[in-house]
């Protein structure tokens, strides 16, 4: 590799101070994303994937304590000043959230919510910002863009709202788009449209996309590279096609088995993964997945693990 990656996360740890002690929700994550590249982070709720995304944005909240490095274009964001982080947020790094109904301000017009990004970052005049807002809505194929500007979020459908969210994220021309479960709250047909839109933005604008999801179907449609997280740790990293066809970590394999498919015989139960993710406040075995793993060996719980050749497992498949 000759050029430095756009985004490089090194040994990122996120801990939250709670009244019942500190909880480390992300434990030493490494990832890299090229300009214009795509990367997915997959995992179940509580695996730390959203906290990783929020750490890149600097939005983990006041109770969070972050260590490691988050290099964006060579600059360590974790040591940057709050003002510098604000200048990057929305302008060069943007984020789309899961629930587009709750993530848009219900009291403000769509146009204002779009335009304020440009007014903040580019000092654009009100009229110029609103005109650009209409063009951006148009580019994410929101019909009657000009009239939409004067509407409120509750007047739009779910799919339209997510398009508005995406327009809001790309309006200032960022290089990195973090999409946290962007299709989870949407109908399957609308999901496909939103994924196609994200793919198009990547191609046309050279936008790098970091996709956070629990849906392996979504990953296969959008991302070249996939990371799997479990209980705050990275357990597998591989090109998406390889990960889906030949998973090496037992957890990835379990996730794939738990997916419903069209070939699945009716009436047969899905192969759901037994047990619960560990409580991050408790001390965990060396391999955090071992208690739920069907391939676990006696040494899995005791011998410390190294992330080697794309997998965090003593006995990869």
């Amino acid at each position: 590799m000759t050029t430095a990656p756009l985004l490089s996360v090194e040994q990122l740890c996120v801990a939250h101070r709670t009244p019942r002690g500190d909880v480390e929700v992300v434990s030493g994550i490494n990832l890299q994303l090229e300009a214009g590249g795509t990367l997915a982070i997959v995992g179940e709720s509580g695996s730390g994937k959203s906290q990783t995304a929020l750490a890149i944005m600097g939005l983990n909240g006041p109770s969070a304590c972050l260590t490691g490095r988050v290099l964006f274009d060579g600059e360590n964001l974790l040591t940057a000043s709050p003002a510098r982080r604000r200048a990057l947020r929305g302008a060069r790094i943007a984020m789309v959230f899961q629930d587009p109904m709750a993530s848009l301000n219900p009291y403000l017009r769509i146009g204002l919510q779009l335009a304020e990004v440009l007014e903040t970052h580019r000092g654009a005049s009100r009229s110029a910002a609103w005109a650009e807002a209409a063009r951006t809505l148009d580019s994410v194929r929101v019909s009657a863009a000009r009239e939409r500007l004067n509407q409120y979020p509750h007047e739009l459908s779910g799919g339209m709202r997510q398009r508005v969210m995406i327009a809001m994220a790309i309006i200032a021309g960022p290089q990195l788009l973090i999409a946290d479960e962007p299709t989870t709250a949407l109908d399957p047909t609308v999901q496909a449209q939103i994924l196609a839109l994200l793919d198009e933005l990547r191609r046309d604008r050279g936008l790098a996309i970091l996709l956070i999801t629990h849906d392996l179907g979504v990953v296969s449609r959008l991302c070249e590279q996939t990371l799997v997280m479990y209980a705050g740790k990275l357990v597998e990293s591989a090109p998406t096609q390889q990960l889906l066809s030949r998973p090496r970590h037992p957890y990835t394999a379990a996730l794939l088995r738990a997916r419903p498919s069209m070939q699945h015989p009716p009436g047969l139960r899905l192969d759901a993964l037994p047990g619960q993710p560990p409580d991050l406040r408790q001390t965990m075995p060396a391999c955090r997945f071992a208690p739920r793993c069907r391939y676990a060996q006696p040494d899995c719980a005791d011998v410390p693990l190294q992330f080697e050749r794309g997998v965090l497992c003593r006995h990869p498949l």
């Binding site: 944005m57 939005l59 604000r86 200048a87 990057l88 947020r89 929305g90 302008a91 943007a94 984020m95 959230f97 629930d99 709750a102 993530s103 848009l104 301000n105 219900p106 009291y107 403000l108 304020e116 990004v117 903040t120 970052h121 969210m165 809001m168």
Partner: peptide, 26 residues
């Protein structure tokens, strides 16, 4: 605590702007 305030912050708005424009009305 609402997601839309998180969105406003994700847009890089200043805290003052977040409070006065996004939070005050509700």
């Amino acid at each position: 605590q609402t997601p839309w305030i998180r969105t406003a912050r994700a847009k890089g708005l200043s805290e003052r702007h977040v409070v006065l424009r996004h939070a005050l009305r509700p």
